[in-house]
Design a protein around this nucleic acid. Structure first.
Lengths: 233, 233
DNA sequence: CGTTATGTTGACCTCCTTCAAAGGCTGTGG
DNA sequence: CCACAGCCTTTGAAGGAGGTCAACATAACG
């Protein structure tokens, strides 16, 4: 296998009993025994950067929970461009629409190397009906999707591009403490509804003003306070 | 009572048995008898234009189903402006976040005169747990919120303002057959993330080019084909 | 009939896109 | 090991799109 391939790799059946993020994901209310008793398989997958979990409009047999990494949900525009409508982090769920429909509404692509669990829709639907804790967790994930979509509208699609970029960096977790891995300029553009060039220019301006500082590779450390000031104008 | 007040008026207990849109709203799977047996009150309200169903951040004791009219969900921006993040039509639900949280995430305001049913959260939660049909309807409403939010990102917050306005008119139902009541220019701006002046200019341009035609008052008829052509560019 | 919100229009300037070119990084093949 | 291709990023210049500020028109309402 090539070192830089973008194929999803199968890492065996999920070992929910020892999953370090189980309490943040869908099955937080279930015991390890209850999970082991599920007949249908939950697979543990590794998605390298740029790997595609599913395509927009494809038949939707699975729900995915993110255990690590960063996933983008994007839609294709009629003019050939793309728009990223959500960013999923550990604990988030992709493909919930499978529970009420037949097809995925977006393409799901790994922005950074990611570990995900792939759960057949039937498993989720059954647990939803039989386990109140799973049911409640599902409602919370759904509301979380709504909240994140609202955040994309209010914070990342409103106001001048510079303020939007500042909000994006904050959204990505730029606290100033640890370096953060940045998406490509193209993805930044698709996230904010601006062109790649504008994204590049704004980031260059941030660097020039000392608001962000290149650490190594695509990792940066940010001046959180300075960005926050730009953000709400 | 003043003829043009914006207070919500109480129109008595909901008569679900004779509700003409019951099959489109949350309780489509329940019989009239089942609904009558609910102990807690479901109120039938009329919300005149500009009436406020609830404020952003307020305690959230109710879920609202829209029976007629048009409701906007808006959030206040740090710089004093506003952004409309959703439009709710008959069959849609407002305030679902009450089922997983304490407070409303937006302000809900009637864009046009609206009839709504106000349902205590406890009623919805109980029916969600005891009636599978209501449970399924809830999931569908939640997904509908996500889909509508995505539409705001992809269609109403992407591309040049003129294309966004064309998509908004189409979203509002401009088929060319019947006249449609338009929101104010200010609301159009808040819907599209542009200024009131730009919204006015674009609408004036549409009229000049014959793409929309003023019927009476704020009602317009649209050239659906012409707008659709502008929409995907 | 004045008063107040809402819509329209103009002038100006900033921001962003577009098109183009150059620079940097990486993997590949000689 | 170096040269080269390919991709991403950066930067420039020019034009257009949209914001801002201001004046004015229109409509709604007391």
């Amino acid at each position: 296998m090539k070192p830089n391939c973008t194929n999803i790799e199968w890492h065996g059946r999920a070992k929910c009993a020892v999953c370090e993020v189980r309490n943040f994901v869908l099955f937080s209310g279930l015991s390890a025994q209850e999970l082991d008793s599920i007949l249908q398989p939950i697979d543990n997958l590794h998605a390298p950067q740029h790997a595609v979990l599913y395509e927009q409009g494809a038949a939707a047999p699975y729900v995915y929970t993110i255990r690590s990494g960063l996933i983008k949900l994007k839609v294709d525009l009629p003019n050939g461009g793309q728009r990223i409508v959500r960013l999923l982090r550990p604990g988030d769920v992709a493909g919930l629409e499978t529970l009420v429909g037949e097809r995925y509404h977006h393409a799901a692509i790994a922005l950074q190397d990611a570990d995900v669990c792939r759960i057949p829709r039937d498993v989720v639907m059954k647990l939803d009906q039989t386990r109140p804790s799973v049911h409640q967790a599902l409602l919370q994930r759904w509301q979380r999707s709504v909240d994140q979509a609202d955040h994309f509208i209010v914070a990342l699609s409103t106001g001048p591009a510079e303020a939007r970029m500042a909000r994006l960096l904050i959204t990505l977790g730029c606290s100033g403490e640890h370096p953060e891995t940045m998406p490509s300029r193209e993805d930044m553009g698709a996230l904010l509804g601006i062109t790649t060039e504008t994204a590049s220019r704004i980031m260059a301006g941030f660097k020039r003003r000392g608001l962000v500082h290149t650490d190594k590779g695509s990792d940066v450390v940010c001046d959180h306070a300075g960005l926050a000031q730009l953000a709400d104008c």
